[in-house]
Design a protein around this nucleic acid. Structure first.
Lengths: 117, 117
DNA sequence: GAACTATATTCCTTTATGGGTATATAGAAC
DNA sequence: GTTCTATATACCCATAAAGGAATATAGTTC
């Protein structure tokens, strides 16, 4: 059952935050790091977990690894990502991540040659 | 984050099947057993897991424990249960459970004094 | 090639989980 | 109270996962 794989990806707070932020657009690891304020290993390992299960896609851009939501998500994935976005609206952690991302966006845009946000 | 708790409940195939079948109406343990064709311990333990996290409610009816979806589910739970029902439509396992439930329903109704379907 | 940067992987420890077997509990029936 | 039924719990084992520290890798720059 593929659904279970999806839910397994969703049952960790860090991964939820990664996916939630990703809905705003592709992002590289170091930008995740700053946005979520979590150590590199943690981010990188959870992204690997999501990648192995097809919840995110990666593309290299020089030294940067740019992660994004799948271009052609399955029906189940699309439904659950939408549900997550919906549920995340009220949660303080998600809101904080989002506002931090918005604040950092201009800095990200100028300092990094990677194509993300 | 309460959401994580919900997803933790959803990331096991047996629990998904329990919740999916429960959407049809309350059910007692032995009827779950027959419907999913799984051993009693397995059913009982997963129901306990769901109960501890508020995904199901229980009521005793004589010897039977009748499980049901929460009468007043949170916003997040309602959204995710709806999403599950939506995603389950195509899956063979879920479909099999449902057809087995429909076939057994009359038998359940006559043989058991418990109030479930 | 050497140094640097961004990211991934390895190793370790701790904790959670799933499944099974056996046993306990609570209520019903006698 | 005894027996039966339905369900829950305890115990054990194997596996997975999360987190951190240290190290490896790949690409860039000089």
């Amino acid at each position: 059952m593929k659904l279970v794989q999806i839910y397994a990806c969703l049952c960790d707070p860090t991964r939820l935050r990664l996916l939630h932020v990703l809905a705003q657009g592709p992002l590289c690891v170091c930008h995740f790091q700053e946005t979520l304020n979590e150590p590199q290993v943690k981010i990188s390992k959870h992204l690997a977990y999501l990648r192995e299960r097809g919840l995110v896609e990666v593309e290299r851009a020089g030294n940067w690894m740019v992660y994004a939501l799948p271009a052609r998500p399955s029906r189940e994935l699309k439904a659950n990502l939408a549900c997550l976005q919906d549920c995340a609206q009220e949660d303080p952690v998600f809101k904080r991540d989002l506002s931090r991302l918005k604040k950092l966006a201009p800095k990200f845009a100028e300092t990094s040659p990677c194509g993300c946000s």
